[in-house]
Design a protein around this nucleic acid. Structure first.
Length: 487
RNA sequence: GGCGCGUUGGUGUAAUUGGUUAACACGCCGCCCUCUCAAGGCGGAGAGUACGGGUUCGAUCCCCGUACGCGCUACCA
């Protein structure tokens, strides 16, 4: 597995993009055996190959002046060309002497591959099967630009040969380019590798998924920042355009795969020919991108749980991430949570020392209802700080602390009652709270929901007695008292 | 326009050599559980396999056509 960055487009290629690719692959644990190599480092050899093809008569110089064009114009031109009968290039049959003379004269030219009039190329794609294409449907493609830089189709072929690439597995947008590349392999007298083309991932409207239109949801590092588990994300990605050939016995189809199982069960035969749609809500994705700064701020998220655009990305991917969080071995989850907490300065060394048992238990308690790693730092913040250094969800405050006017004066009473609990256990807290509720003539639910919000800032969470057990007696009492004063 | 590739519920995918009430998962709805929200358990709605022809006793599956989508048709990759 070789990582090669194909950066032959000098204009569009940029450092940030390359960095994103490498970071994304590292995060996913897609560890390459060699590289990263940069195609641009091999320009000289690509140029030499183009010249070699010129010498051997497989290519010719085209002296047509370069046109300035932008992407929109290119589309228009393709449409225009469509209406014209195919013209032959006037330089295609130029004599070698004249060609050399004009080149020596300093006249600018590109080198084009000379596709024969008669014949066809063919190859057996591992996914799409036998592919054939008539030479007359292949244009004389440009190998070398007028500025001397090689173009993609030449560079890939050259590098694949040089790197002894045996299997070229890539997006099906290159299916028709393969015929052109085969021509180059043959002209260079080299053996053609095995090709396998993969279906593409499309937007919900079945159009292209593009950074310009869909924002950062197309970038891998976005998922890292959003709190996805690498294996979970990889698992969900693997299921787009592929399914295991080996079926489960009961008609059930396996969907959850460990990395190792994925490696063992993968085969080219399980790859589909049709594109897959990434199922997200475009509007949510747009607002996610617009609000990214806020959404990456755990405190803001905790204060505004209802404002998070739920379907900013694929729903099944989100489900799978939640599934991993709640079922993966705790010891594998812990380091990931640690990293997130460290990022928010919520980490304490004691969590791996004297408080390890407490920490493990708390993470175990919280993981059941969290969907991303970020949730531990946002919704989970109250568990890892002293005092009231966490956000309150205003909706929760209204609903659980302010709605019922009898609650506020009773919060200190409840606090006092809980302060008197001698042994801080689930059952003791339960008994004390219920006794206090009965003594004061309020329903236990009012205390329960009120206490949850007072202690965690939120309307939702684990069973209240589990919450109080995790928060501890001291913090519970403090927070109840302060909430009474504050709201 | 030409050439190529594709098309199974909203989405991801199943369906042995053509014979199933077209299956599973996500999502959605409801019920149970319950101190909230999830999770979990149970149940439900939702496709007759893009459309139209053929072949066949019988087509999701084979053939043809049409539509739609995607790709290539760039001195992009």
């Amino acid at each position: 597995f070789v990582l090669r960055i194909e950066d032959t487009d000098t204009l569009r290629n940029n450092e940030a993009m390359v960095q994103g690719i490498i970071e994304g692959m590292n995060w996913l644990g897609l560890n390459y055996d060699e590289g990263p190599f940069f195609q641009s480092d091999n320009y000289a050899k690509h140029r030499a190959a183009a010249l070699q093809l010129l010498d051997s008569g497989h290519a010719y110089r085209d002296f047509t002046p370069k046109e300035q064009r932008d992407d929109a114009k290119i589309k228009q031109q393709i449409a225009d060309n469509a209406r014209q009968p195919k013209q032959v290039n006037p330089y295609r049959e130029l004599s070698r002497e004249e060609s050399d003379a004009r080149a020596e004269n300093g006249e600018a030219f590109v080198i084009r591959f000379k596709v024969s009039e008669e014949g066809k190329t063919q190859f057996a794609d591992e996914v799409f099967g036998l592919q054939e294409r008539d030479y007359k449907d292949i244009e004389d493609l440009v190998l070398l630009r007028s500025d001397g830089h090689p173009l993609y189709n030449l560079s890939v072929v050259y590098d694949d040969i040089e790197m002894n690439i045996t299997h070229v597995i890539r997006g099906q947008d290159h299916l028709s380019n393969t015929h052109k590349q085969i021509l180059i392999y043959q002209a260079l007298g080299k053996t053609v590798p095995t090709f396998a083309h993969l279906p593409l991932i499309m937007a919900p409207d079945k159009g292209k998924l593009s950074k310009r239109k869909h924002g950062e949801i197309v970038s891998i590092t976005t998922y890292r920042d959003a709190g996805f588990i690498p294996d979970a994300f990889l698992n969900s990605l693997a299921l787009l355009g592929w399914s295991p050939e080996e079926k489960e016995a009961e008609g059930e189809i396996q969907e959850l795969f460990t990395r190792q199982q994925l490696i063992e069960k993968f085969s080219l035969g399980g790859i589909h020919k049709s594109n897959a749609v990434y199922n997200f809500n475009v509007q949510d994705a747009t607002s996610w991108v617009a609000q990214k700064e806020q959404l990456m701020n755990p405190r803001w998220v905790a204060a505004n749980p209802g404002k998070f655009p739920r379907n900013w990305t694929d729903q099944k991917a989100q489900w799978m991430n939640a599934e991993y969080i709640k079922t993966m071995p705790l010891e594998d989850l812990l380091p990931m949570v640690k990293a997130k907490l460290q990022g928010e300065k919520l980490w304490r060394e004691e969590y791996e020392g004297v408080q390890k048992q407490w920490f493990d238990h708390t993470i175990n308690l919280l993981r059941d209802r969290y969907r991303t790693l970020n949730d531990f730092a946002s919704f989970g913040r109250a568990y890892f700080v002293d005092d009231l250094d966490f956000e309150f969800d205003e909706e929760a405050v209204k609903k659980n602390l302010q709605k019922d006017p009898v609650l506020k004066p009773l919060l200190p009473v409840l606090a006092e009652k809980l302060a008197s609990v001698s042994e801080w256990t689930h059952d003791a807290i339960d008994a004390a709270l219920r006794a206090c509720a009965e003594a004061n003539g309020v329903k236990a639910g009012v205390f329960i929901n009120g206490a949850r919000t007072a202690v965690t800032g939120q309307a939702v969470g684990p069973s209240l007695f589990e919450v109080l057990l995790a928060i501890g007696q001291k913090r519970t009492v403090e927070r109840l008292q302060k909430a009474a004063a504050r709201f």
